[in-house]
């Protein structure tokens, strides 16, 4: 099956600064992919490249096998909810649905209307008077009612309160379960992604630090605690992501597909947050290191 997003050597430069560089990535279909990284890591740049709002400076990107925003057909296959979930302040909720219906041949008005009703939005209300959560839900409605194969969301919940955040993610998951769409979702907060993502991409310092299925990543990463030890003496199959030492003790996060037999170590499972933080820290300290990629 075609990858929903396929990037090869992808880079984007603004004047002299590379916002994204050497990004090679292949997101399989049917996933909810979480794109995590600190602010300014290049998440928005990558997503804008994927929806064709930006053109690459280097490398190539294809989305669902096509060039982003190249044709009305390509645009119809990808739904996008931009950061801050922009809507037309002067237009009413009903106007927005009208806009969606007129500009998208595949518009599902039943889905749109039932969502607006379920959300309890007044169709006559101007979008400018909606709360942040309601506006985000309206933007999501516009994006899902065009019935895209891939839904791309750029920090959709970043500015929402916890309740609105939960409601938004519920709506999103309901759509994914009901319509079998793929999703790429960015956030700088791991907690937003932990429940919803089954594919993870960590972006830091304009580079992809880690990408892969969440289950695989969690199964192959471990935290080892034990007597102080030089990371260089670990077996060849164990790649050290992060290491810290006191005068007697060493704590390391390692990646390995082999079981760890050394009885000196206490082996612990990592949470997604531990994993993301380890790779973000690695990206921040070794900015120039080549991307650590899991290609399967």
């Amino acid at each position: 099956m075609t990858a929903v997003l396929d990037a090869s050597g992808l880079g984007k430069r603004y004047r002299r600064r590379w916002a994204l560089s050497d990004c090679t990535l292949s997101i399989p279909p049917g996933r909810v992919a979480g794109l995590v990284g600190p602010n300014g890591a290049g998440k928005t740049t990558l997503l804008h490249l994927a929806v064709g709002l930006l053109t690459p400076t280097a490398g190539t990107i294809t989305v669902l096998g096509g060039r982003p925003a190249a044709s009305p057909q390509q645009l119809a296959r990808v739904g996008f909810v931009a950061q801050e979930t922009p809507t037309y302040a002067a237009l009413s909720v009903a106007d927005h649905l009208q806009l969606g219906a007129r500009l998208n041949p595949g518009w599902d008005s039943k889905l749109a209307d039932s969502r607006i009703e379920q959300l309890g939005l007044d169709p006559g209300q101007r979008a400018g008077k909606l709360s942040g959560g309601q506006r985000a839900q309206l933007a999501l409605t516009l994006a899902v009612a065009k019935r895209p194969e891939l839904l791309i969301l750029d920090e959709p919940v970043a500015s929402l309160d916890p309740l609105a955040r939960r409601e938004f993610l519920q709506s999103l998951m309901e759509f994914v379960a009901g319509h079998e769409a793929s999703v790429v979702l960015s956030s700088h907060l791991v907690a937003d992604l932990e429940r919803v993502c089954d594919y993870l991409i960590v972006l830091a310092a304009a580079r992809v630090q880690l990408a892969g299925e969440v289950d695989d990543l969690l199964a192959t990463h471990h935290r080892l605690t034990g007597p102080r030890r030089d990371p260089a003496t670990l077996p060849a199959g164990q790649q050290v992501i992060e290491a810290s030492h006191t005068d007697r003790q060493s704590t390391m996060i390692v990646r390995t597909s082999e079981p760890i037999h050394d009885p000196a170590w206490t082996v612990e499972q990592l949470s997604m947050e531990d994993l993301v933080l380890a790779y973000m820290a690695a990206g921040a300290t070794v900015g120039r290191r080549p991307a650590l990629e899991v290609q399967r």
């Binding site: 996933r31 909810v32 519920q170 998951m173 309901e174 994914v176 379960a177 429940r195 089954d198």
Partner: peptide, 16 residues
């Protein structure tokens, strides 16, 4: 249903 659990808990339907 998978959809109800996914929507109710805001979790990935693949998890369910």
């Amino acid at each position: 249903t998978v959809k109800d659990v996914a929507a109710g808990l805001a979790i990935n339907p693949n998890t369910v």
